[in-house]
Amino acid sequence: MTPLLKIDGVSKRFGGLMALADISFDVHEKEILGLIGPNGAGKTTIFNCIAGVYKPTSGDIVFTPGDTSIRINGFKPEKMTELGIARTFQNIRLFTSLTVLDNIRIARHCRTKANFLRSVLRTPFQKSEEKSIVEDSMRWLEFVGLASQALSDASSLSYGNQRRLEIARALATEPKLLLLDEPAAGMNPKETRILVDLIHAILDAGICVMLIEHDMKLVMSICERLVVLDHGTLIAEGGPRDIRENPRVIEAYLGRGAAGNA
């Protein structure tokens, strides 16, 4: 079976800095893939390559949302979203001066099509589309448990809720693959537990999740497979248990001596 996303020999160079060097791995359907590595390993860079923010210097990224595979390197972010790749950001990027509902309504943009004339004339098509936008948005807000706050300002939400709103916004674009960039950063244990449940629910909804995370306990407990990056190279790939015992991974995190002692 073809993998949902195939990263094939991807490199990314910023001037003289090799941020990613010849990375290859696959993301399969119905899995949670964890992407870990020390700070500056290139985790967010690979997310940005997949999400269309950066164009890889070389290599291929092949996305297979249905039956056909598409080589997606260098596509624009909005094109990626349309194809079915949604993402959240390491530092939350909400539309803070808008309401919670508006944040989600904007995410319905790529699945709707009312234009200027239809908006000004309020045609029956536009009206029914607006109605379905509100309903779909509310469905996603219920999914993450924020429905009751739909009309409050996004900036008034607590930190954990803002994270969940960002996930809801990504989900509202109806993705096949969801990229979560450090979703548990700064969360308290209770919020993290809610997040774990949410990620499992997302998976049950048939959406594949790729996750960057520093909270090892979280990563080890929910990911079936892990990819470890260090200095822009892929140093290990496999199940949580293998990764935990892999000497190269321990070395990357703790230094050479630590690997020897373990």
Partner: peptide, 8 residues
């Protein structure tokens, strides 16, 4: 950037 990743 967030707008673009929402498909705008």
């Amino acid at each position: 950037l967030a707008a673009a990743s929402c498909g705008v």
